[in-house]
């Protein structure tokens, strides 16, 4: 049996799972409850995007969350019976995550200095 490169993908899955677990609930609370209820002016959030540290944080959160999904979802589809298509499924999932990551980088680091 050849050496598996799964450890690399599992690292991304694990990092993404940890980051999403720690940071995502509070972010959803902010964007889905505090902002719409008027407890947080959208301008405040908008202004935060100017900060490099915030942009880096969002890049890590979005990119790793997408890779977490890609890895988990690809195994879920196999668990649900799509074993025969497991290689194309994996490719599509990781490619989507990569595409999302690149888009995020462009928006966060490409549009402003």
């Amino acid at each position: 049996m050849s050496k598996s490169n799964e450890p690399f993908l599992w690292s991304l899955f694990g990092a993404g799972g940890m980051v999403a677990a720690l940071f995502m609930p509070i972010c959803i609370l902010i964007t889905a409850i505090l902002a719409p209820l008027g407890l947080l002016p959208p301008g405040n959030l908008f202004a935060l995007f100017g900060k490099l540290l915030v942009r880096l944080f969002l890049f890590v959160l979005i990119a790793l969350s997408l890779f977490h999904w890609a890895h988990r979802f690809r195994f879920t589809l196999v668990d649900l019976g799509l074993k025969k298509a497991k290689t194309p499924i994996a490719l599509v999932c990781y490619a989507s995550a990569l595409a999302g990551t690149l888009l995020t980088a462009v928006f966060l680091f490409g549009l402003w200095s």
Binding site: M1, S4, E6
Partner: peptide
Amino acid sequence: ADFISSSEGIWECT
């Protein structure tokens, strides 16, 4: 190691 860390080893487990 070859069996444990193969794709039919630990990496098959979800």
